[in-house]
Design a protein around this nucleic acid. Structure first.
Length: 154
DNA sequence: ACCCCGATCGTA
DNA sequence: ACGATCGGGGTT
């Protein structure tokens, strides 16, 4: 799912962003996953249905946007790490920066992006060559190649 | 109630 | 390489 989201377009109000970079966080056995130590108020959305937004506050000043994947009860999410504004071609690289661009905050945690007219992922997709590397900004779980990044247009 | 630290980012 | 900045969550 993390790989499939590359090239798709996030629509949030009047802003759009082509997804260029993602990371996967999968289940309670993934030490880098917020759900690794069980369900808490913060990560509870990860334990619900796929297709919901998981937004959390980090480092005292940033928000990060994820989309929930997998079946209900199995916590997994895709972190969105980079987008391009299709209007201007401007890159927003980094999960905190792209949330600032969209205006995404903790208020948007738990939104069902499958039935919202304001916040959804457009299925039309640009095709990219995709680099696969270890996830960054984490201390455990770096052996998995769960970071996906668009490199050049095919 | 306390304390450590984080799926970050800008500046040096 | 490091500081800013603060809520979450594990521990007491």
């Amino acid at each position: 799912m993390a790989k499939d989201l590359i090239g798709k377009q996030i629509v949030f109000g009047d802003r759009r962003g082509i997804i260029t970079e993602t990371e996967a966080y999968i289940g309670t056995d993934d030490p880098a996953c917020h759900a690794a130590r069980g369900k808490t108020p913060r990560n509870s959305i990860m334990f619900g249905q796929a297709g919901f937004a998981y937004v959390y506050f980090i480092y005292g000043m940033y928000y990060c946007l994820n989309f929930i994947t997998e079946k209900e009860g199995f916590p997994a999410a895709v972190l969105i790490r980079g987008v391009i504004d299709p209007e201007t071609g401007k890159h927003y690289d980094g999960p905190g920066k792209l949330c600032n661009y969209f205006g995404i905050t903790k208020e948007h945690n738990g939104i069902n992006i499958c039935n919202s007219a304001e916040f959804y992922v457009d299925d039309s997709a640009a095709t990219f060559k995709i680099d696969r590397t270890p996830r960054i900004g984490i201390k455990a779980g770096t052996e998995k190649l769960w970071r996906f990044k668009a490199v050049t247009k095919k």
